[in-house]
Amino acid sequence: MSTPETAAPRTAVVTGASSGIGAATARTLAAAGYHVFCAARRVERIEELAAEIGGTAVVCDVTDAASVAALAERVGPRLDALVNNAGGAFGMRPVAEADTEEWRRMYDINVIGLMQVTRALLPALIASGAGAILNVGSTAGRTAYEGGAGYTAAKHGTKVVTETLRLELFDQPVRVMEIAPGMVRTEEFSLVRFDGDQDRADAVYAGVPEPLVAEDVADAIGWMLTRPAHVNVDELVIRPRAQAAQHKVHRVG
């Protein structure tokens, strides 16, 4: 029989771990005692991160079923926590000018990818006896705004999948949670959204005294996951103080 000294550490999978909120969450969970499987497409980044935190790098594209199956095999029969962080926003065109491929890509990553990873790892989460699924949504999954229809639709999908999964797993030893960040300044999110246009990316945060940073969201994720197993934080909306609502942001200068 294992003792506290010899028991295996808790394990967690973090998707989209190569940068931003995902990388910060991997570091936070490692500091809390988890062995973290750092899953993302960019091998060099996740290998560096895994080496830093004593985790395991797993190359994974959440939109590819075979890649997700390989992740589940690498994780094994037992898993304590899954953070579905892989996501992304592409473009800001109005619906009348929408790019079909941008919309499809957002849905594939934010909804289909989340489903595929959850489906593949759910048996291991149940087997742990106290599993936790934490989906990284967005305030965009709660409020519409001009130019954001493709992303807001995808993140509304993230929210509803989370709510449905909680209903479906009500009698299983798995908590199902969502964190919905507002304005978070990371090195890549807006830059990717605007196809590498640094000026447009910078304008999103221009004059905002203190937007959230990845570590703020990771800290909240760590808190949610480390509550007692009977405590389910259904959803946590987190914004910078300067952002009163999606459309109302205090800017200086």
Score class of each variant (00 low, 15 high):
T6C: 00
A7C: 00
G16R: 14
G20Q: 05
I21T: 05
G22E: 04
A24R: 08
T25N: 04
R27T: 01
V36E: 10
V36W: 08
E44L: 00
I46H: 11
E47M: 00
A50M: 09
G55Q: 03
T63E: 09
V75N: 06
A81W: 06
V83H: 11
A89V: 10
M92P: 00
R93S: 14
P94V: 04
A96I: 13
E97A: 15
D99I: 13
D99Q: 10
E102P: 09
E102V: 03
W103I: 15
M106H: 14
D108P: 08
I109Q: 08
L114H: 11
M115A: 09
M115N: 02
Q116Y: 04
G137Q: 06
G141T: 03
G147H: 05
G157K: 14
G157T: 05
V161N: 02
T162Y: 02
T162P: 01
L165W: 07
F170Q: 09
P181C: 04
G182L: 07
V184C: 14
R185M: 08
F194D: 10
F194G: 12
D195A: 13
R200D: 02
D202T: 01
V204F: 01
E210W: 00
A214F: 06
L225I: 11
H230A: 13
N232A: 02
I238Q: 10
R239N: 13
A244G: 12
K248Y: 03
K248R: 10
H250N: 08
